[in-house]
Write a protein that binds this DNA or RNA. Structure first.
Lengths: 224, 224
DNA sequence: TACAATTTTTAGACAAATCTAAAAAAAATA
DNA sequence: TATTTTTTTTAGATTTGTCTAAAAATTGTA
């Protein structure tokens, strides 16, 4: 049976399930999905039944769901497209990193393998998106990168900001205001155990103090 | 009342109505719309009622429809987006002119004014798409160009191929096989009144004979 | 273990977009 | 003008994706 047509709504559920599986490291419950999708639990149950019938998810009542290989392939490809479009928007159209998510959310549903291939080529086969998230290749393989949360880095160490954990607009704009972006060099000067905040030197010049909340949302690649 | 949300299906109907109004120079009938949309007449009636309720079309039972100003603005913007994306696909991603229509058909529904503005800028504010169709500007104004159908051009005249009337894949591929593309220089050598076919010299070198069916689908800008 | 809290499913509705078949209206023609 | 043909609308269904309220199942806790 050739792969049936998959709607945008279905695609969005697959992506949500993929992310929950990944983040929580286990089968996704109805509740987590309904929160991610901002819909009612009843809608989720309905959709899960549909996805199961199409053999995109492994689903048994009250058990929590995982993606089948087919579902996983679709979800991974959506993430690939989403992230490639984000690179396009930032690199080619000069969008800011806090603006691209909702647009990529629409662009990711455009159905043309050739378009993805050509876009990837046009962008120079990027491995990471504007937030530092890895872009899976055409076979669904994600690039791996040695990285640690800034909050885990010891005093005196140096590194480069390579990714953000949180993607919210306010967070990204706050980083902009501090002139902290991907590629920024950081050196850990001090750590205040009282509230977990840290003092850093960025780009070998100005100093900033970051709260624990911020530290725990920045990924650093340590300088060897 | 702020502009209500407009679905993709609604957008497609508006675009179809716009084109019928333009081509036939009069209100679009149910039948023409149902043919353009490849749906049943009943579906069209339903949709017309919805569009009328949203004040996007002028509609009275059995009268034929035209777009309201609001509807016209939306349709024009869709055409703008469609054609800009086609330019992107051809100029930046090296797609052939016979491949881009269905992809642009999806891309045109992406909702972001900023995206359109930036894309237009990125492409260098093109005035015509890869088929030679004018791209309306942000205010909805279409560029005008002096052009005639090849079938109307007199013997001895020279000109440049600037547009195609038909957009079908087979037609475009046939032109490719003759090495006829936008910008190709043509000189009319002979016209056969028997079947309306014409003999031309293209790019000041090779000769081709085109059937009337082809002549009537090519737009030429005459050389002064 | 038994009760309470939480999660998930079921039941029943609704809106959007579509369909077929039949009825009504408009247009064409004899 | 009367009749036939064509076009358009109505009536009644269907599918997708959603909802609320209530029931059922699972999980947590006293």
């Amino acid at each position: 049976m050739a792969t049936k047509k998959i709607s945008q709504a279905e695609e969005n559920y697959l992506k949500a399930i993929f992310k929950i599986n990944e983040q929580e490291g286990k089968a996704a419950g109805n509740k987590a999905i309904s929160q991610a999708m901002e819909t009612s639990a009843a809608s989720v149950t309905d959709m899960l039944r549909r996805l199961a019938k199409k053999e995109l998810i492994n689903y048994e009542s009250h058990k929590g769901v995982t993606l089948t290989e087919k579902g996983d392939r679709i979800a991974t490809n959506l993430i690939r497209k989403h992230r490639l479009w984000e690179v396009f928007l930032v690199d080619k159209l000069q969008f800011a990193w806090d603006e691209v998510h909702p647009i990529a959310e629409e662009l990711e549903h455009i159905k043309s393998d050739k378009l993805v291939t050509r876009l990837d080529e046009f962008l120079g086969h990027p491995k990471f998106d504007p937030h530092g998230d890895p872009i899976p290749d055409a076979d669904g393989n994600f690039a791996f990168r040695q990285q640690v949360l800034l909050s885990e880095v010891e005093i005196g160490k140096k590194g480069t900001l390579v990714g953000v954990q949180e993607h919210s607009k306010p967070f990204l704009q706050y980083l902009d205001s501090l002139e902290l972006g991907l590629g920024t060099e950081v050196e850990i000067l001090e750590r205040y155990s009282y509230d977990g905040s840290m003092r850093l030197r960025i780009n070998a010049s100005k100093e900033v103090v970051l709260s624990q909340k911020v530290n725990q949302n920045l990924y650093i690649k340590l300088t060897e």
